[in-house]
Structure formats: structure tokens, C-alpha cells
């Protein structure tokens, strides 16, 4: 009995270290659908950020890369 407890305990401990993903890879069909992308068409989002940045004081944290539009 003691052996089982020790083995189970160590096993659980290691399992925690491994972090079991609570959404399994085979459960990600919906997440991988195009309509779930934050940035479905990069050419469009870059333009939209530029439209807003040119007319608003706020800037940044739009997601995605780039170095800002450098426009005045």
C-alpha cells in the first residue's frame, strides 16, 4: 500500500511539472478555424491600425509586429 502511495504521489508530482493541457490538441478544431484568428488578414489589420493611429493620440498594443507607421 505504502509503495502505491509513494509511486502515485511522485507520479502526480511529475504530472504537475509536465502541466497537462486542459484543451487537448485534438480538441482544437474550433480554435484553428480561420474565423477564430485575431489577425485573419494581416494586410488589412496593418492598414486599420494606420488609419486609427493617424487620427487618434492612442497607439500601441495592437498586437502583431512592425515598428509603427512613423507618420505625422
Amino acid at each position: 500500500m505504502g509503495k502505491i502511495i509513494v509511486v502515485t504521489f511522485v507520479s502526480l508530482l511529475l504530472q504537475a511539472c509536465g502541466v497537462e493541457p486542459w484543451v487537448k490538441p485534438y480538441e482544437r478544431a474550433h480554435l484553428s478555424d480561420r474565423i477564430m484568428q485575431f489577425d485573419r488578414d494581416p494586410v488589412v489589420s496593418a492598414y486599420e491600425h494606420h488609419v486609427y493611429q493617424a487620427r487618434e493620440a492612442a497607439r500601441g498594443a495592437e498586437g502583431g509586429g512592425g515598428g509603427g507607421c512613423g507618420c505625422n
Binding site: F38, A61, E62
Partner: peptide
């Protein structure tokens, strides 16, 4: 940080200092 919350939800948090 982009985080899968459930099999139907995803969260993104972004910080930027300029």
C-alpha cells in the same frame, strides 16, 4: 500573452510602452 482558455475561447493580452 495569448492564452487558450477553453476549446472555444482564446484570450490575448498585450502591453506596449513607446
Amino acid at each position: 500573452v495569448s492564452q487558450i482558455l477553453t476549446k472555444n475561447a482564446v484570450l490575448g493580452i498585450n502591453w506596449e510602452t513607446i
